[in-house]
């Protein structure tokens, strides 16, 4: 009996590791889309300068393709919500094809390190509900691409996307753009996200040291 359970456990662990290994492999971009294919854009607005950079990044995208937009905003960040609304108004007056989704913060400004784990866990559960559970139940859809510019909470969103990937559910392509303010080193969020995202873009040539994954095409915002 004990041996059977042990073997079952061992099998489960091996399967999990193999699945993780598979999921962490760099996946390929989506195959060519039909000319009239409609897509959903997801973008995390991290407040302050992060929000300005994110909105600047998406402003030149092909909005005839992105017929739906999802703006992920940190809890309590009303300014980013009004900026997202103003941005939508400037692009599509009277459009209703967008939503602002509030995500609990991974860590509040000045929050002590000790009290961070429970807060981050709460944030993770909320993100899993958003990215994994509710699409699974048909209550919402997952964006086709998720654009991230920092700070910390976008790591949690990213982890939730990995839960979907692990379960073989549909997941957005992940594109991280390091802040224009980072000249010679990456932010902590950037360092943590680098192995997880599909594309990792920097805006200064020396921001990522000798990282092979980081791509530099000049200032993007």
């Amino acid at each position: 009996m004990v041996v059977t359970i042990l073997f079952a456990l061992l099998g489960l662990i091996t399967a999990t590791i193999l699945r993780l290994f598979f999921v962490l492999q760099r996946s390929r971009p989506r195959p060519p889309a039909a000319l009239n294919a409609k897509r959903t854009l997801g973008v995390f607005l991290g407040s302050g300068g992060h929000t300005s950079e994110a909105l600047s990044l998406i402003s030149a995208l092909d909005f005839t393709r992105f017929t739906t937009r999802k703006y992920y905003v940190s809890e309590g960040d009303h300014l980013s919500i009004s900026k997202a609304k103003a941005f939508e108004e400037s692009k599509f007056p009277n459009s209703r094809n967008f939503e602002c989704i509030v995500v609990p913060r991974a860590r509040r400004v000045h929050q002590s390190i000790v009290s961070t784990p429970p807060t981050a866990l709460r944030s993770l559960f909320a993100c899993i509900k958003l990215m994994t559970m509710s699409p699974l139940l048909g209550a919402s859809t997952v964006p086709d691409v998720l654009i991230l510019n920092g700070p910390g909470t976008c790591l949690i969103l990213c982890l939730a996307v990995y839960v979907s990937k692990f379960l073989g559910l549909s997941a957005p392509r992940l594109v991280y753009v390091e802040s224009f303010a980072r000249v010679r080193s990456l932010s902590l969020t950037g360092k943590l996200l680098r192995p997880l995202v599909d594309r990792f873009l920097i805006q200064w040539p020396e921001a990522a040291g000798r990282s092979k994954k980081a791509e530099y095409y000049g200032i993007l915002v």
Partner: peptide
């Protein structure tokens, strides 16, 4: 200062989504 140029980022996103 260089003017805003969104074409580079747009090209990356288009590539990722197969546009």
């Amino acid at each position: 200062f260089p003017k805003y140029d969104g074409t580079k980022f747009r090209a990356i996103i288009d590539e990722e989504l197969g546009f």
